[in-house]
Amino acid sequence: MTSAFLVAGGINFDVPGSIFEVALFALFALAAVIGAIVVVSASDPFVSALSLLLNFVSLGVLYLMLDQPFVALAQVLVYAGAVVVLFLFVIAYLGDRREVFSDRRRAKLVWPFALLTVLGLGGILVGVIIGSDFPDTVSKLADTAAGHDFGTPSAIGETFLTDYLLEFEVTSLVLLVAAIGGIVLGLTGRARHDRMRKLMQTRSADQQKAVHASAEAELRRTRRTAPTAPRTDTAADADGGKEPAS
């Protein structure tokens, strides 16, 4: 199969036959696999995130080879441009803390299992895929229903806004939920952080002791009020239904 996109870019691999195409596939497939392996095996998350970039970009090229320039573009923009950068930001923000635990304890035990998982699951999947005959493998784009429009932004836009309109809308709701989550979690984290810093700044030992003492008093108070016997003040007072004054 040929890639209209690459041909348009001046690369014409119709002439040297498909060998060029096979080489291209092999190169980027290898890059994707190596990228994935490094992501999984690197001890430093920073290295992992960077090799994820390699994996994503290689996949982008593979999408181009599948005649799907729009998905390739989205892949590079969304994944490489947004997701990986987000990861890198967080890793940079965490600084040293990212490496506090880097699987050294398990390293020796783990590798046989890792190999087994990869070989087992991968073997099954690849075997199934290679072993099954596809209904009607279309190799020439002109023969397909989509024809020459295949993979163009306009064709994808049309499918998106007709058949998949509902999902398109719901995806926006998913993004809204994620935004709420990001904000709420960020604020929660900040609030805790501030509280911690405040206590760290109360340098005098007396002050710290006072803080601890009051916390302990609170603890004792809750413990004492809780398990007294026999239970008289369980929540049954549907008739008296006052909210407790702690």
Partner: peptide, 22 residues
């Protein structure tokens, strides 16, 4: 410090205030 906020124990603090829930 992170599990308790002893300085001003409002119900929002992780030290959950015992109470009833009719």
């Amino acid at each position: 410090v992170m599990t308790g906020e002893p300085s001003h124990p409002v119900p929002a603090t992780p030290v959950r205030t015992p109470g009833r829930a009719p």
